[in-house]
C-alpha cells in the first residue's frame, strides 16, 4: 500500500503537469480589463493539483496517512484476480461493441459473467443473457429512439426496424 501511495502521487503529479502544459495552449495570464484568459481556470487548478500531489508525497515521507503507513499489499491475489477478470470483462464488452454492436456485446458479457464467473446454471444464464438485450432494444431503440450501435450485426436488425420503428 505504501509503495502504491507514492506511485499514485507521482503519476497524478505527472498528469497535473500535463494538464498545466495543455491548458497553457490558451492564454492563462491576466488579460487587462478582462480578468483571466481562457486557459487560466484549468491552468491554475492543475497547478493546485500539482501542489496537492507534492503535499501527498510529503505526507508519504512523514508516514502521516493510513495508506503511507500500511504495509499490506495494495491488491492481494483475490483482488488482483477479480480486477482482471471483471475489469477485463468490462473492457472486452466495450471493445466488442465496435464489432458485434451493443446488443451482441451485452449478451456475450452476461454469458461470460453469469455463467463463468458466477457459475450459475445455463437455465439461469440464458434467460438473462437473452432477456437483457431484448429489453434494452425495446427501451432504447424503440421507445427512446436512441439507436444503439449494432456493429456487424446491423443487417439482422433491419427486419426489426421495419416492424417496430
Amino acid at each position: 500500500m505504501r509503495r502504491a501511495e507514492l506511485v499514485a502521487a507521482v503519476l497524478m503529479a505527472a498528469f497535473s503537469g500535463y494538464l498545466m502544459w495543455k491548458s497553457a495552449e490558451l492564454p492563462f495570464g491576466w488579460v487587462p480589463d478582462e480578468g483571466p484568459g481562457g486557459g487560466a481556470f484549468p491552468f491554475w487548478l492543475s497547478a493546485i493539483m500539482l501542489v496537492c500531489c507534492v503535499w501527498i508525497m510529503v505526507n508519504w515521507y512523514l508516514r502521516k496517512t493510513p495508506p503511507s503507513q500500511s504495509e499490506e499489499p495494495f491488491m492481494d491475489d483475490y483482488a488482483r484476480r477479480m480486477f482482471f477478470l471483471v475489469g477485463g470483462g468490462v473492457f472486452g464488452m466495450i471493445g466488442l461493441v465496435h464489432i458485434v454492436g451493443m446488443y451482441g456485446a451485452i449478451a456475450l458479457f452476461l454469458l461470460y459473467y453469469v455463467r463463468f464467473l458466477g457459475r450459475h446454471s445455463w437455465r439461469t444464464t440464458i434467460p438473462i443473457a437473452v432477456g437483457a438485450p431484448v429489453a434494452a432494444f425495446f427501451f432504447f431503440d424503440v421507445a427512446l429512439r436512441i439507436v444503439l450501435p449494432k456493429g456487424y450485426l446491423e443487417p439482422l436488425f433491419i427486419p426489426l426496424y421495419r416492424i417496430f420503428l
Binding site: 468490462v90 451493443m102 458479457f109 452476461l110 459473467y113 458466477g118 450459475h120 450501435p149
Partner: peptide, 22 residues
C-alpha cells in the same frame, strides 16, 4: 454475480445514451 453484471450493462448503455458516442 447477477446484480454486478446488470449494473455494468446499465453503465455501458448509460454512458453511451446521453451523447450517443463510444
Amino acid at each position: 454475480t447477477i446484480l454486478a453484471p446488470t449494473i455494468f450493462v446499465l453503465s455501458l448503455i448509460g454512458g453511451y445514451a446521453p451523447d450517443e458516442n463510444m
